[in-house]
């Protein structure tokens, strides 16, 4: 079994002031190999926390999460991460960023170079290998981050609002790229977003999370990602089913936020 299984996952933070924040409560879900899950929810509902636990950066307070029947207890190469701002190493060139993982593993430089070229081509950065990363635009930086993560051949790719900081046009292009990579590599992907459209377009499955305590509020199985592989993304957005779901989810999140406001007052 190469699934990601979460059982009764709980995460309770203690702030320095002494308050406790129940960031995740009794989270149970199973993600099959090759599935693309998008996670949506209002700010502060524990999306990043979930991803950080999955990546192994933090340990859950209770419960367990396993990948390929192995308990996750620390960062590992089998789980790649893409951050909102890329988190690129700006002192390195594009190629050096991409081959970072392989260099750390001291793999054969010639092999490495070949892989780098391949991946740069896939993400559309052919010929940019020697460019310093600080000279790249935001979209290009995210492409580098993708390539850097994928070159390690992880089983699971975790993306925390990877397209959040991009302009609309670049964003659309990147969405196609994510779908293309998903299809060509067959990787399991968890993608967090705050855009309802993006969650619907890219997600094979979609979890809408609710805050305080953080939990899965509603789960959808969606056809749009498979459609998106063939059709233009913009056409899908005109789909009736799509807009209906979009309105429904927007309403849901809207209500959640109002509820939060009410609690606060």
């Amino acid at each position: 079994m190469s699934d990601l299984i979460s059982q009764n996952l709980n995460m309770i933070f203690k702030t320095p002031k002494g308050d406790t924040v129940h960031a995740l409560k009794d989270l149970n879900f199973t993600l099959k190999k090759g599935e693309l899950l998008t996670v949506l929810g209002p700010s502060g509902c524990g999306k990043t926390t979930l991803l950080n636990i999955t990546a192994g950066f933090i340990r859950p307070t209770s419960g367990s999460i396993t990948l390929n029947d192995k308990e996750i207890d620390g960062p590992g190469v089998e789980r790649g991460m893409v951050f909102q701002q890329g988190a690129l190493f700006e002192w390195l060139t594009v190629a050096e960023n991409v081959n970072f993982g392989l260099r750390m593993k001291k793999e054969d430089p010639i092999e490495t170079q070949k892989k780098v070229d391949e991946w740069l081509e896939i993400v559309g950065l052919k010929g940019f290998g020697n460019t310093p990363t600080y000279q790249l635009s935001g979209g290009m930086q995210q492409r580098v981050a993708l390539a850097r993560c994928l070159i390690n051949d992880p089983d699971l790719i975790l993306m925390d609002e990877p397209l959040g900081a991009l302009d609309a046009l670049t964003r659309e292009k990147m969405q196609s790229l994510v779908l293309k990579i998903w299809k060509e590599t067959g990787k399991t992907i968890i993608l967090i977003t705050h855009s309802v459209e993006e969650a619907l377009l890219l997600g094979e499955r979609l979890y809408v999370m609710a805050p305080r305590p953080g939990r899965i509020h509603k789960e959808y199985n969606l056809p749009f990602a498979s459609m998106g592989l063939k059709e233009d993304l913009r056409e899908i957005k005109k789909n009736k089913d799509f807009s209906q779901k979009r309105e429904e989810i927007l309403e849901m999140i809207w209500n959640m936020e109002e509820e939060i406001m009410g609690k606060e007052n």
Partner: peptide
Amino acid sequence: QLSKIHAAHSLGASKKQ
């Protein structure tokens, strides 16, 4: 930034690296 350390860590870098 923590995210850079996290990124390096999940790319397989050791503490020393």
